[in-house]
């Protein structure tokens, strides 16, 4: 049990980068960008193929992010210059990427077994630090008999995710970042303050899909393979993370919201892992569970708010009656 939660948290932090990308397009740019299903795989494919061809894993991962950036900018160009509706631009790019991803990989599935990855690169260095022995020692003392093989992936992913979060927070407060946010908030207004909303949309979608592809490349290295269909439903998982996170952890400020999105990604993985432990649920039910989670996260806050409001009014009427 502890181990499956542990690996859920691990992958939660890897997928959190994808969720941050979805947050940028969906919330900041107000652009429901379905490119994600394709660009996630593009990241995985570019990362995997680069590694197989001898590119150092870190560089391969950077290539993956660049490929995602490129995919995002094309969606942006379709939307702003081609005047194609946002949803349709994303869908077109998504199916185009399916073929492109197949071309990159040359076959539907590429295995990374016995190839170097970012994670086993780090693990070598990690073992010298002796943190695993220390943390696992603590766990054994609490009575757990089975301990994680390594803490390296989790710790590294937490650090990477937090760094990406902090950069995102800062960026969204820069002059360019403010204009980017205004593009999603009130396009007409920011255009009247000499911001090129077309360019901002294109760059914004590029950054968003760079994060998605980065996440894809890390997932491929974590799982040991890239598969052409591994991106199916990814946008919904991203949205689930954003929406669950916002509902649970709040949206008071940008910094708070990006933290909430990361939290949402982790919570999503934990919930799915726990749900799959239920006897009659199967792996194939995961998408259904995801859809239900999103629906709950969207509807529950409204019901709670409505009930609070109703009880507030009831209290007021009561006070009046008692007077």
């Amino acid at each position: 049990m502890f181990l499956s939660i542990f690996s859920a948290v691990e992958s939660g932090f890897i997928y959190a980068l994808m969720a941050l990308g979805v947050y940028l397009s969906f919330r900041i740019l107000d652009f429901p960008d379905l490119t994600v299903d394709g660009s996630f795989v593009t990241g995985a494919a570019v990362g995997a193929i680069s590694i197989i061809n001898g590119v150092p894993p870190v560089l391969a991962t950077v290539f993956a992010a660049l490929a995602g950036f490129l995919a995002g900018t094309i969606t942006g160009i379709l939307n702003t210059k081609g005047k194609i509706n946002p949803l349709l631009s994303g869908i077109l790019m998504m199916i185009a990427l399916y073929s492109i991803n197949l071309r990159i990989m040359d076959k539907p599935n590429v295995a990374l077994i016995r190839e170097p990855t970012i994670f086993n690169d780090v693990e070598g260095f990690w073992e010298m630090l002796g943190i695993d022995a220390f943390l696992n020692g603590l766990l054994t003392n609490t009575g757990l008999d089975r301990v994680p093989g390594t803490w390296a992936i989790l710790i590294i992913m937490i650090i990477v995710t937090i760094v990406v979060k902090l950069i995102t927070d800062y960026f969204l407060k820069t002059e360019v970042g403010l204009a980017l946010r205004a593009t999603g908030d009130n396009e007409k207004m920011i255009r009247s303050f000499s911001a090129n909303t077309d360019t901002l949309t294109i760059v914004g979608l590029g950054i968003s899909n760079a994060l998605v592809a980065l996440s894809g490349a890390l997932v491929a290295q974590y799982g040991g393979f890239a598969d052409v269909s591994m991106g199916i439903g990814m946008i919904v998982i991203g949205l689930a993370s954003v929406i669950i996170g916002e509902a649970l952890f709040g949206t008071k400020s940008i910094a708070r919201t990006t933290l909430a999105v990361i939290g949402g990604a982790v919570v999503y993985r934990i919930v799915v892992t726990l749900a799959l432990k239920v006897e009659f649920l199967e792996t194939g039910d995961m998408r259904l569970i995801t859809a239900l989670l999103v629906i709950i996260a969207l509807v529950a806050p409204k019901i709670i708010a409505a009930q609070k409001e109703a009880s507030r009014k009831r209290r007021k009427r009561q006070e009046l009656a008692n007077r």
């Binding site: 820069t174 002059e175 403010l178 946010r181 205004a182 908030d185 007409k188 303050f193 000499s194 911001a195």
Partner: peptide, 29 residues
């Protein structure tokens, strides 16, 4: 409603207006 960005703060809106005749940079707004 047309002249301001509703989800952003007063100071952020002013910062965007402040950059009207300048090149927007990656410095804090």
């Amino acid at each position: 409603m047309a002249g301001t960005a509703p989800t952003m703060t007063i100071e952020e809106n002013l910062a965007m207006a402040y950059a009207r005749n300048k090149t927007r940079t990656l410095k804090s707004g």
